[in-house]
Amino acid sequence: MTRVETTHAWRGHDQRLGRAAMTFLLFLPALIFLAVWFVWPLGQLILLSFQGEDGAFAAYQEILTSEVFRIVFFNTLKLAVLVTIICTILAYPAAWLLTRVKGFWFSIALYCILVPFWISILVRTFSWMLLLERSGPVNNFLITLGVTDQPLKLLFNDLGVYIGMVHVLLPYAVLPIYSSMLKIDQRLLLASDSLGASGRTTFFKIFLPLTLPGVTAGATFVFLLALGFYITPALLGGPHNLTAAMLIDSFVNERLVWPLAAAASVILLVIVLVVLAVTSRFVSLGSSVVVK
């Protein structure tokens, strides 16, 4: 009985204090880790971006005024936008298929989306290199079909980069769109139908608008990931498929100009934060993440 009494005596003010201390202790490892291994390195890098040889903003000035850097940043944005559009268009029917199939076929369809999430981007990119080669299976297939009489150049150019990037980023678009389709109240479609609306009207006036939050969330994920992409464009692209991430890499490893690398990555981060701030006003990105 004594034990129960002590627990009772323990309640109240002391316990609340102990509880708060306990909660803080649980967060302590995460707090120290993020401070030392995330905030401090990023802070160092941001400081570095202001330590150019010719004044605090020299690095930013060089990047924003140089023709080459402007072209690379523009190309990166263009690539990210186009990949986002293609992914969203392809993801829509795939997400819809997921809502229509049941049982065994649903599991198969879901695994088609989930398995690529787990598999190394490098391995997936390497697979495309083997498939798109001059004498690879895709070219052989096209020649057998009679589409072309000699092998097409599918690798080390825009086409290769787009195929690879869309393939890697597509699952990120499918899942949020699928979850927004699941949330649709089927009675709305029934109501529209019984009021005499055509299938086309029901789709464009009811179904599509209700899935827009999912489309926005999916498009945002794809766009942000595409913006910082490195592996796939570096392997599948040609010399002029330089992206911002590859530029930053060359600043660090070839030209050894740290302030420029730091400034370029800060610019990239600012673009990411602006996009996030704008889209999170329209949709709750957090709730779409948890679906994963």
């Binding site: 229509r100 088609c112 690529p116 598999i119 391995v123 997936r124 697979s127 495309w128 083997l130």
Partner: peptide
């Protein structure tokens, strides 16, 4: 007919996602 077309398109997209991975 448009339902069937969309389902076929969806299936093609899913095949595009999975098939190439195992080329290695």
């Amino acid at each position: 007919s448009s339902q069937a077309l969309t389902q076929i398109a969806g299936a093609v997209v899913l095949a595009f996602l999975v098939m190439p991975i195992f080329a290695v």
